[in-house]
Amino acid sequence: MWLKLTIVMLLALIVISLFSGLFFLMKDTDGRGRLVTALSVRISLTILLMGLIAWGFWSGNLVWNTPWLH
């Protein structure tokens, strides 16, 4: 249960980072590099999410619930 909750929280953080990057793209004109920081955070969160999903499948905590695979 905690794994699925963590995955959902990471997805929410990725979406928040995506929209903050969009905001900085439109409104940040002084060139402080906040857009690059938002992109770096989003990439890091995505790598963490993919690793967590891979670990979940490897450990058996995440399984496919499709009827054609049984």
Rank of each mutant, 00 (worst) to 15 (best):
W2C: 02
W2D: 12
L3Y: 01
L3I: 15
L3E: 02
K4R: 15
K4Q: 09
L5A: 11
L5F: 05
L5R: 09
L5G: 01
T6H: 05
I7Q: 07
M9G: 00
L10A: 07
L10T: 03
L10N: 07
L10M: 15
L10I: 11
L11A: 10
A12I: 08
A12S: 13
A12Y: 10
L13R: 15
I14G: 05
I14K: 07
I14P: 03
V15E: 10
V15I: 06
L18C: 06
L18G: 04
F19L: 11
F19N: 02
S20T: 11
S20Q: 09
G21W: 03
G21N: 06
L22G: 12
F23P: 00
F24P: 00
F24V: 08
L25A: 13
M26K: 14
K27T: 08
K27R: 07
K27M: 07
K27Q: 04
D28Y: 07
G31F: 11
G31Q: 13
G31A: 09
G33A: 02
G33E: 05
G33P: 08
G33Q: 06
R34V: 01
L35I: 05
T37L: 10
A38I: 00
A38Q: 13
L39K: 02
L39Y: 08
V41M: 05
V41L: 14
V41Q: 03
R42K: 06
S44L: 14
T46A: 11
I47C: 12
I47E: 08
L48P: 00
L49S: 10
L49D: 14
M50H: 03
G51T: 04
L52G: 01
I53T: 11
A54H: 13
W55Q: 08
G56N: 02
G56T: 02
G56H: 08
F57E: 05
F57R: 10
W58P: 00
S59P: 02
S59H: 11
S59T: 15
G60E: 05
N61R: 15
N61T: 12
L62V: 04
L62Y: 12
L62Q: 08
L62M: 07
L62T: 02
V63G: 01
V63A: 10
V63I: 13
W64A: 10
T66V: 14
P67I: 13
W68F: 14
